[in-house]
């Protein structure tokens, strides 16, 4: 094997990665064509009807209900995760930075990221759902809020560990400068550390949002599987990921194409969210 072959092998492997990504986009688009042809691209996106009738004529599919469900659950999850992940980030990245206790908490929070989605779903179903029922929040215990609570726990590690990194990166000299003017730690955090690391922290939450949008199993088990726009936080619904997980197995024809179309939309949404998040990180570190 000559160097030339070796170098081209490396290049080919990078090309394959590019091809995989391009191929994913292509295959999803191709699979989605029948659905878009039937309902129109925007007609599909903006219709909240999901009727899988037996006869061809009654079939009607649209993504809006699931887009709504996805946005509701993931944004709510982000809001719930905020008051926990931000303290963790400051605990690890500032208050106890470099200390053993920060390592322990960081490790515990990281383990949260390791728990499989389906185990979260089980826990949500058998532990959280009864709690929601007994609080009288909803009769069945399923729904947007239940899903968001579990999603919030699932994305805490992503939001916290990345934010902690940006908090840690704030130069010590800036903090010392502020302390030398008589500021307390709270004042330094509020006026120096937070503004300096803000765009980084923001991007961490954008990436965490991306996680929440695409999370499948736990949501599938908790959201209640109804194919309409949720009418409130206690209502049931479906996310883009959960409708695919629920109905892909038995689907064919137009329905399969519609599910693939939802997959394409989900792929594009997460790609855009991740793209923005990464772009902000890049901007921040310059």
């Amino acid at each position: 094997m000559s160097d030339k072959i070796f170098r081209s092998l490396l290049l080919v492997s990078a090309l394959i990665l590019l091809l995989i990504f391009a191929g994913m986009f292509f295959s999803l688009s191709k699979g989605a064509v029948p659905a878009f042809r039937e309902f129109g691209f925007f007609g599909f996106i903006f219709s909240d009807k999901w009727i899988s009738g037996t006869g061809q004529s009654t079939e009607q599919y649209g993504a809006l209900a699931f887009i709504a469900g996805t946005l509701m659950t993931s944004i709510l999850a982000l809001l719930i995760c905020l008051p926990f992940s931000l303290p963790v980030a400051f605990f690890v990245g500032e208050y106890f930075r470099g200390k053993k206790v920060a390592g322990v908490l960081g490790g515990i929070v990281d383990l949260l990221a390791g728990i499989p989605s389906i185990v979260y779903g089980l826990w949500g179903f058998y532990a959280l759902r009864p709690l929601i029922q007994s609080l009288g929040l909803s009769e069945q215990g399923f729904g947007v809020l239940t899903s968001s609570l579990v999603l919030a726990i699932m994305i805490i590690p992503y939001a916290a560990s990345l934010s902690a990194e940006f908090i840690r990166m704030v130069p010590q000299e800036l903090k010392e400068g502020a302390y030398s003017l008589g500021a307390t730690r709270a004042e330094v955090i509020r006026n120096i550390i937070f503004p300096t690391s803000f765009s980084g922290i923001f991007s961490a939450y954008v990436l965490a949002l991306g996680r929440a949008i695409g999370e499948t199993m736990a949501v599938t088990m908790l959201i209640g599987n109804t194919s309409r726009i949720p009418r409130g936080l206690m209502d049931t619904g479906n996310t883009m990921a959960s409708i695919i997980a629920n109905q892909f197995g038995e689907a064919d024809g137009l329905k399969l194409s519609s599910l693939i179309a939802i997959g394409l939309l989900l792929f594009l949404i997460t790609a855009i969210v991740n793209f923005l998040g990464r772009l902000m990180i890049k901007r921040h570190s310059v």
Binding site: L17, L18, I20, F21, G23, M24, S27, L28, G31, L207, G210, R211, I213, G214, E215, T216, A241, I244, A245, F248, L259, I260, G263, L266, F267, T270, A271, V273, N274, F275, G277, R278
Partner: peptide, 21 residues
């Protein structure tokens, strides 16, 4: 950049892809 985007792609999408491929 695409690698990073791939890392953020929901696993269910990869299920669809493997189904199609």
């Amino acid at each position: 950049f695409l690698t990073d985007l791939l890392q953020g792609t929901p696993s269910i999408i990869l299920g669809i892809i493997a189904y199609l491929w």
